[in-house]
Design a protein around this nucleic acid. Structure first.
Lengths: 230, 230
DNA sequence: CGAATATTTGATAGCGTTCAAGGTACGTGG
DNA sequence: CCACGTACCTTGAACGCTATCAAATATTCG
């Protein structure tokens, strides 16, 4: 994927786009490598060009919570572009081999301050994520695991999916453990639920693979509409 | 409280401050009134001048999750100032009689686009809240209620507290139900925990009142340091 | 003082975690 | 291409944290 194909960059004017491109560095990581760790000082701003990246926080007890799955074209670590933040709140792990565009922190800050267009788009993005966090926070506080897992799958399908057989393949390599980290539960409970839904024909599951065969039934399991209110 | 005493406004230059003030409208609400409801179209941007406001989301089952408690000087509904968002993700309720500065959406958008200074500060604010949401999301996903409640109390003390007797009074009128909505549990569990901690001399509790007598012990209960990593 | 709101406490049940054990798929090197 | 090691997945059994429900008590305010 080219930098200009990114949703963020695509909305910029020609001049801003050129300045961004000129300042970008290309970075590569192998599957399993960490791009940065939570608590580490901010390095800079990324846009993912190819592969999949996982942003997560692990607690003192070792339990991992996945904050975001990054697909090509997405920007992340935008916090580095806005001034006073100190260190990364999450760790970033390459789920596959990845290639990224990278801007060191100072460069990113300069670009953001000189290109209000860019600043606006990044702010919208941060704001959108904040809303998703709020919704997930409500869900994990008040709903049961099956609902949360169902909605997690639907959300993933909405974000990155491909048609496959008689269903929709979720286009991330997600283990049961990963799904647990997204839904706020354990891999055991995830395994049980996926098996049950597979038996009922709602899903087709495999190793690090989920295919949704009946989105309506899943929505049922999630307990109705996705939006907090309509 | 005067608009210029707000943390956000205080950091602005004289010119920006003047333009903000000139465009501000004053609004008043009585205790118990809703400023807006989740799902409603965005009205505009607020800065709280006096009183206390609660931002929360309620699920279809009626369970409430409190996203933020607003103290005088804080801005909220900043999402209204940045373009494409559609509707409020939360409801805002006056916990006491309140007075606010208000900018209608169009005005707020214009101000933000013409005052990059203001845009930057609001973005930082949104970003900071997003990080808190991430942390709370991890906590509610992986920690037990007692830890979350302890950290909730510490967080509140850090945000708005007054010295009182031999302790720190949390300066919000919070019922057990409210604390439950913050920690992601039920009022019953909150009541039991507060009683236990009161017996142990860590807290002093009353109707809609909590005084922290031993912050270190509370920190113990929370399971150590607040930051995700250091 | 009375009504409304808030709180406490007990009893019960269940959802989901934890721990254990075995099975299955994958990829890598011989 | 096969064998092996590693990573991932499934299933069972038991426990316990926390929600739920019920009922009584306490506090505030008009």
């Amino acid at each position: 994927m080219n930098l200009n194909d990114s949703a963020i960059v695509g909305q910029l004017g020609a001049e801003a786009r050129r300045r961004l491109s000129a300042a970008a560095e290309e970075r590569n990581f192998r599957r399993g490598e960490a791009l940065f760790h939570q608590g580490e000082p901010l390095k800079g701003l990324f846009i993912l060009l190819a592969g999949r990246v996982k942003l997560s926080q692990v607690g003192p007890d070792g339990h991992e919570t996945i904050m975001r799955l990054v697909a090509p074209g997405d920007a992340f670590a935008a916090v580095a572009a806005f001034s006073h933040a100190r260190s990364y709140p999450v760790s970033a792990l390459a789920m596959t081999d990845v290639t990224l565009a990278f801007w060191p922190r100072r460069t990113a800050q300069r670009l953001v301050s000189e290109l209000p267009e860019l600043a606006g788009l990044l702010t919208e993005e941060i704001s959108r994520h904040a809303q998703v966090f709020q919704q997930r926070l409500r869900e994990v506080s008040t709903e049961r695991v099956s609902q949360r897992l169902a909605r997690t799958l639907l959300r993933l399908a909405g974000q990155a999916s491909r048609p496959h057989d008689a269903g929709t393949l979720i286009d991330f390599p997600l283990t049961r453990q990963d799904l647990a980290g997204l839904a706020g539960t354990t891999l055991f409970t995830v395994s049980r639920l996926l098996s049950a839904w597979s038996d009922r024909g709602i899903l087709q599951v495999g190793r690090a693979r989920v295919i949704i065969r009946s989105a309506p039934d899943l929505l049922m399991e999630a307990g109705g509409d996705d939006s907090p209110a309509s």
